[in-house]
Simulated assay, not measured.
Amino acid sequence: MTPQEFFLLLASVLASVAGQFFLKLGAAKLGRFQLANSVSHIFGILTIPELLIGLSCYALGAIAYILLLTRVKLSVAGPSASLVYVFSVVLGYFIFKESIPLFRLAGLGLIVTGVILVVWQK
């Protein structure tokens, strides 16, 4: 993977993680979803700034990913994008004080190892 390709991957992953962060903040403001409040939730999604920022971050991440796909095989880009899961768990731990059970930590290690094996070039 060239430095430009790595930058596109990193931009895509970080934008997606930022999107998840802002969606989580906005979802907390939105409150718990129930069928009775579905209309107000849909309106809330369109008016809560954090949710709009989160959706915008996802859009930027998608644009970076599309640009990455013009340069890298899907069999490399797709698994590499799974780094979003790793960063999301780390973000949840440090920002939202979520725990990371041992099995989840092991799973994250497997994801990182898998990505390294997928992108490794001789």
Results as ranks from 00 to 15, higher is better:
53 I>K: 10
60 L>E: 04
18 A>Y: 07
43 F>V: 02
23 L>W: 10
18 A>H: 08
56 S>M: 11
7 F>G: 03
15 A>F: 15
119 V>A: 12
62 A>Y: 00
13 V>K: 00
60 L>F: 14
7 F>I: 14
34 Q>S: 14
64 A>Y: 09
61 G>F: 02
25 L>E: 15
43 F>S: 05
98 E>C: 03
66 I>L: 07
102 L>Q: 08
4 Q>E: 12
9 L>F: 15
109 G>F: 09
73 K>F: 04
104 R>F: 01
7 F>N: 10
98 E>V: 00
48 I>R: 01
27 A>V: 06
25 L>V: 06
71 R>A: 11
26 G>R: 08
28 A>D: 12
12 S>H: 03
81 A>F: 14
57 C>E: 01
90 V>C: 02
35 L>I: 15
50 E>D: 13
31 G>K: 03
97 K>H: 14
24 K>A: 13
12 S>W: 01
3 P>V: 11
104 R>H: 08
39 V>S: 13
19 G>E: 04
49 P>I: 02
1 M>V: 09
74 L>Q: 05
34 Q>I: 07
105 L>R: 06
106 A>Q: 11
70 T>I: 01
75 S>C: 04
114 G>M: 06
54 G>P: 03
60 L>D: 05
121 Q>L: 08
61 G>H: 07
39 V>W: 14
119 V>S: 14
38 S>P: 03
118 V>H: 05
121 Q>M: 07
73 K>I: 07
103 F>V: 14
26 G>E: 08
122 K>L: 06
26 G>P: 03
47 T>F: 00
71 R>Y: 11
48 I>T: 07
97 K>P: 00
71 R>S: 12
81 A>I: 15
90 V>E: 03
85 Y>C: 06
14 L>H: 00
25 L>G: 05
92 G>R: 04
24 K>N: 13
